[in-house]
Nucleic acid binder design. Sequence first.
DNA 1: CTGAAAGCGCTTACAG
DNA 2: CTGAAAGCGCTTACAG
Lengths: 330, 330
Amino acid sequence: MVTLKDIAREAGVSVMTVSRVVNGQLSKVSEENIKKIQEIIKKRGYVPNSTARSLSAKASNIISVIVQGSGNELINPYNATMVGEIVPYVQEKGYYLMLHFIDNYDDITQRLRAWNARGAIFIGTFDHDVKKIQQDNRIPLVFTDSYSSVRQIINIGIDDYKGGVLAAKHFINKGHCSFAFVGRTLTSGVIQQRLNGFRDTLEEHGFTMSTEHILDESDIQNPAKIIKSFKEPVTAIFAASDTLAYSIIENFKKLGCRVPDDYSIIGFDGLPIGNCVSPHLTTIYQDITKKARLACDILFRHIDDPSFPAGNTVLDVELIERDSVKTIET
Amino acid sequence: MVTLKDIAREAGVSVMTVSRVVNGQLSKVSEENIKKIQEIIKKRGYVPNSTARSLSAKASNIISVIVQGSGNELINPYNATMVGEIVPYVQEKGYYLMLHFIDNYDDITQRLRAWNARGAIFIGTFDHDVKKIQQDNRIPLVFTDSYSSVRQIINIGIDDYKGGVLAAKHFINKGHCSFAFVGRTLTSGVIQQRLNGFRDTLEEHGFTMSTEHILDESDIQNPAKIIKSFKEPVTAIFAASDTLAYSIIENFKKLGCRVPDDYSIIGFDGLPIGNCVSPHLTTIYQDITKKARLACDILFRHIDDPSFPAGNTVLDVELIERDSVKTIET
DNA sequence: CTGAAAGCGCTTACAG
DNA sequence: CTGAAAGCGCTTACAG
């Protein structure tokens, strides 16, 4: 392996002079030496040793991306898109990206400290541990979609509540009167907010949605049971994600129920698949690319200026109308 | 930050004794000291500094996963699934995972060397650069889906040719007589092999597929033009991936053509989506989880024993019959 | 503009 | 079972 020392010896200068050239402090080195050193670096294929650099600088060029969970978390297209957007953006800035799937809080600190990560981006629900994570890790930490009550938090989220509102209004405008919601209501603020926005808006318009119509993801494996449990015949279902929406569509199809003929459905996320597969999905769109880039930008800013104030950024959502909601004539 | 030195001081022993405990060389330390040191480590929340370790050991605990491309490479569900399977498996073994999207060959060596990566797994087409990559990086390198002509290569692939054979036979069995193929034929051996298996089998059974019926992915944006270019009316289309298959289905739908009524289609990969969305896709299934795990296992083996021989492992594929191929009565 | 010294936190190799 | 010494490849801080 070629080291600074090797280059220095060959150039007949000290290690420090080479180090300066490598780090672009060219104003501090004579032109003659710069040229000579750069040539040798190129010829030898010298690559700076980041482990040595990090040890010396007490900080690395590593950005850690932490996805909640311990299985294949990228099967979820939302997670995959987020991570996939972050990778090239982080690379572009000269950082290296470590990817972690973590369920256990202790692992986060361990993994961040082991490599002296320069910063971290969190994908998934960490609401419960935000405070502890912050206390143990004095580096910029950017959360996404957090509804943690911690006041000093760097977070990028979307207007989940509004998403619910838009879905409810759309159904109402299309003449629907009986509603259901499907999502993991217990696990995250995100889903809770989508539900709240949906339910509040229904009530504002004089409709109610009884508890039996609020379903967990796992329930839809047994659609017959669901339909039986409904207090009245449901025509409009709001799914907490696009993938969930398609899962519902397929499960109901087994019973001979078709979307949008027998049921109307609105998804959430606005994934490309919603426009690539039938029925095209009416959905609440969020700009995942923008969210990912923004998370990175804010992280970079906090790395450059640790005194930059924390804050919660909320991106807008919008309804995209496609083919999964039927108009009911009254 | 807590260091070995801090622990040593508090325990009244040398740094080496603590180091031994941290590294599990417990047979070399007295029970009394082990206990004392372990308690202090826990109390202080000591985390070994991996950058120091790596520098000292001249090798890191980092496995680099290198995906070919420079955009959002995880929008592709195949890539996302592969990476998503590798992450927890690598973590389980005590390694850290760096994720890179790389287009340019030089970047590979730079990124691998910078961190003294312990090994690397390649996802995507690197056939052209395998030799150079191997020459510059003396660590275990596991390629996937490579058709490089380099003899000494560690590769995990699938029987792409057989996939083509199975697709052809299935169409023929169902009474089809006129065929087309869609895929990026120029870019990779993978697609080329799928095409070869398909075409060879057709010919063995007395059918031919003219060049006009071999289409590039980009062509399907304009389905009307495609249909016009066909030498004869096609009933059977073999798509080089599931996502491509759905894309074809949607594009043809714009012309009022339905699958499988007007066209039959077979996909490739066996992604979950093929069973979650209509029409359920008849497809050539490959076990991506197995492939990912195997790539890791082989990498680990080569890390543990650098003299372990290189080799090409080929996983089987099978046809999964679902609803996208129609039977043609003759 | 240049370089010698010290140190980052660990491990390797050796001596006891 | 224990530890002192040297070194991994860099950077920081200082002196010239």
